[in-house]
């Protein structure tokens, strides 16, 4: 079983997140591997362990600091780490990013065929959840997204999708792009041995030229959408917090009634 997991370097949820020149600010200090990608790494490791053989790759796309995302994946136990980095990628929209990832996946697939690409359900910075679909389309592989359960039997993958109106069970032949939700599993914690081992594991770094993508095909120039303004929302004024000393419920009701909300 050969699996590639995409991981994204995002601002820590607890940090003061912001925009710089229309892009999410990503720095080494406040950045980390997207939390929801832990479920993707976990799904890949569990499949490999169940199969008793195989290799798991972690791949990230981004600037120098983004290497932290694949280092985290190494600590969790993946075998190989790949970092695609090129100044021309900056400002890419989801379709540009999908092109870059697809090219890197194809390069690895040529060495020896991959069975699966597994991603998280969303990145906690943009939250668009579009990348898995764009990647499946770009690769022309099966699309099994929003999986809260995943099984592989021979050359067929099956997922369960918990959608608001129905629970779907969807099957497709490998290779497939699977995105897993945070219901899919409980991610493991890195142990000391793996953290030490991860230090000495190499990270392969590729440029756009290495994966055969022309610079003008990606980046801000090729993006179909442009952020024209980003500004922090003013904090709420007139906040009131009362402590219940016997009349807290009345205070709450009167607030709602006074605002015409009850």
């Amino acid at each position: 079983m050969r699996i590639l997991v995409t991981v994204k370097f995002v601002p820590d949820l607890q940090s003061q997140r912001s925009f710089t020149d229309g892009s999410v600010t990503r720095t080494g200090d406040d950045g980390t591997m997207n939390e929801l990608d832990e479920n993707a790494v976990e799904a890949a490791l569990q499949l490999k362990e169940a199969a008793g053989e195989g290799e798991v790759y972690a791949l990230t796309v981004g600037g120098d600091d983004a290497v932290a995302a694949v280092r985290k994946a190494l600590q969790l136990g993946v075998d190989h780490a790949v970092h695609v980095s090129d100044a021309a990628i900056a400002g890419s929209d989801v379709f540009g990013t999908a092109k870059v990832i697809a090219a890197a996946v194809e390069k690895i697939d040529e060495e020896a065929p991959l069975d699966l690409v597994i991603t998280g359900m969303a990145a906690l910075d943009g939250l668009t959840s579009m990348l898995p679909t764009a990647l499946a389309a770009e690769l022309d592989w099966s699309q099994l997204t929003l999986a809260s359960g995943l099984t592989v039997d021979g050359t067929t993958a099956t997922v369960v999708r918990h959608l608001p109106d129905a629970h779907e069970t969807v099957s497709a032949s490998l290779p497939a792009v699977v995105s897993v939700t945070d219901e899919a599993n409980k991610p493991r914690y890195p142990n000391f041995k793996l953290i030490m081992a991860a230090r000495s594991k190499p990270v392969t770094t590729w440029s756009l030229a290495d994966v055969g993508i022309a610079p003008e095909a990606v980046g801000a120039g090729a993006a179909r959408t442009v952020v024209v303004d980003a500004s922090p929302r003013p904090p709420k004024e007139d906040r009131t917090v009362v402590t219940d000393t016997g009349e807290g419920g009345v205070a709450l009701a009167d607030y709602l009634l006074g605002k015409g909300l009850a």
């Binding site: 917090v241 402590t243 219940d244 807290g248 419920g249 709602l256």
Partner: peptide
Amino acid sequence: PDAPIFEISDFGVVGDLGDVIPQAIARI
């Protein structure tokens, strides 16, 4: 009283749900 939810709330009550909610419902 230190719950982060109060930082983004227009109106907050520090108290027990079992006391505050029934009283609020009765008042409304």
